[in-house]
Every structure is written in C-alpha cells, then in structure tokens.
Computed example of a mutant assay.
Amino acid sequence: MAPDPTIPSTANSTLESSLVPLTSNHSQNKHPLCEGRRYHHYRSGRYLLPNDEVEQDREEVKHLMFLSLTDGRPFLASLSSPRKVLDLGTGTGAWALEVGDMFPDAEIIGTDLSPIQPTWTLPNVRFYVDDIEDEWVNGDDFDLVHARHVMPFLKDPGLMLQRTFEHLAPGGWAETQDIGHQVWCDDGTMSDDFAVAQFFDEITSAWGTFGADLRVGPKLGDMMRERGFVNVSTTVYHIPVGVWPHEPRDKELGVSFRIVIDMAISALCGAIANVRRWSDEEREAFADRCRRGLDQPSVHGYMKCYFVVGQKPE
C-alpha cells in the first residue's frame, strides 16, 4: 500500500515471513508512533492511516454503515453456502467474523498488515499478518475473495484482481467494496469551495503521489473483465455527507458517515500537509474548515460507494 514519508520503512521480505499467524506477543505488535498516532509495524509505511484504537473505532462504524447500505448483507455475490472465504485487508476483522457467524461450516481467513483483530475468534475464522501486495501464500480455491476499502490504496489494483482470479476456485467470486472519495451534489447546494469536497480532492491528490488511485472504484468492473471475470456487475450506493437528509435511514447513514470522516480528518490532513508542505498552522486551519463543513446541513452532498462483483468461469 502507499508509503507514508513520515514513517520509516522497515520492509524486508527476506527478514520477515509473508504470512504470520496472529499472536498476542508477536513482534508485529511493536507498532511505531507518529504525532501521537500508532501505525502498523509489519512492512511499516505501506499504509497511510493509523491502526490505533481511534482508527479501529472508525472502522467499526464503517462496517455498520456498509451493512446498513446493503440491508445487512456482508456481500452481494451470488453465493449461498461458501466453503472457503478470504478477506483481504481485514482490519478489525469485523467483516470476517460476520461472515464466519453466518456460515459456521465455512473456513474464513482474514489478512492484514496490522494484527489488530481480536485474539478471541470463532472456530472457523483465522487471522494472519500478511502483505497482500506480495505473492500470496494464504491458500487457493476460494469461493469468495472479499476486499473492502482496499483497492483504492494499492499501487496496482489490476495485479490484485489477477491474483484474486488465480486463487479463486472455478465458479468462485470476487467482490470489492469501496468509497469513491469524491463529493457529489445534484441540487446546486454545494459551492466549489465546500471544504469537505476539497478535503477529498486533496487526499486523493496526496495519495496519488504514492501511486494509488483513491477513485478507482468505478473502473474495477472493466478491470475485472479484462482479467477474465464473467458476470461482472457494479452496484452504486449513495452515502449522505452530513445530517441533511430527512428520511430516517438516510439521516442515520449521514450521521455515521459524518463520524467516519471527522475521525479521519486529523490523520489525513497530516498526510496532505506532508505532500503540500503546509505549516502546522495551515494544516490545522484546513482541518477546522473540514470539520465546519461537516456541520452545514444546507449542503446536500453525498459520496458514491461501489460494490463490484465478478465470477471466475466454471
């Protein structure tokens, strides 16, 4: 994933295993700190966001928000009884545990750079420390390979889709779920200087300097087809930015998304400042503008979320 210039890299595939079981005392738990936030140790610098408790809480809110989008379905793939499932970039492990609970006879594997998953788990769910941008060593013949909030942060999502294709069982499914990182508005209530829209423009530009495309979501369907997937479909959900909707379900989504964005502003403004070479005062002023923008109910902005599904031929 995209490197953070503020965190020294310790990546060395000759020194560390590509697939490490999660244990409470493993060296991968020795996370580096930067400006009061904690980041992953394994392949340090591959991912810009922290992995501390604040970020884990934010991920849990996102998990519930995505389940609300889909009426409680953890995936859209046409799969009724998966036998073997891989969750790439599992984060807190919430999605893997959700699927493991739904399908107790299935084997669920979750991998991530950070060993932040619970040490207790379901009997059919296992977590590993792994860099998914390396060669995969975590099995084959998966019925479902799932990646949520992963593809926009990779330097080569096409390669990830190719590896997914190769590790799927015939007839198996791949599914990506990603926020589009762009604020839209259909009724003219959003001005060109709306701070939240500028925030996502800035972070997209900053992450782009490391080779990642935060707005890759709508492109993933074609990328799947190019790599041999069939039955490819893209479902687009709208998530309100803020509390402006009147319909209760949309308002609840907007409240959740407001929390998700607000909790990320500090860390991501730091990444923007590093690229733009802003002073601390400039960074804080921009962050304050972003937070005020989240509390403007007169602006009817929303973001698109892309669920892209494809199947490996039988």
Rank of each mutant, 00 (worst) to 15 (best):
E226I: 07
T176S: 15
A147F: 12
R148E: 03
W278D: 06
V232P: 10
I108N: 04
S13A: 09
L268V: 02
P170N: 10
L22T: 14
N274E: 15
H41W: 08
S17A: 12
Q198I: 00
K312N: 03
F75E: 08
V54S: 11
D57Y: 09
L48W: 11
L268Q: 05
G171C: 03
N51E: 05
R283G: 03
C34V: 08
S17H: 03
R277S: 06
G172T: 08
D295E: 14
E55V: 01
E98T: 02
K30I: 02
M1L: 11
M190N: 15
E135H: 07
G301F: 09
L69K: 03
I259Q: 11
K84E: 02
W136S: 15
P74T: 02
L220V: 12
N138Y: 10
R227Y: 04
E202T: 00
L294V: 11
F142D: 13
R38F: 05
G254E: 10
Y302K: 01
N51G: 12
H238Y: 07
V243K: 09
V309M: 14
G93V: 04
S68K: 12
W120Y: 09
V137L: 01
A287R: 13
W184G: 00
Q198L: 13
R163W: 01
A267Q: 07
F127K: 06
L220M: 06
T209K: 09
M190I: 11
P104E: 10
T10C: 05
H40D: 03
A271W: 07
T23E: 10
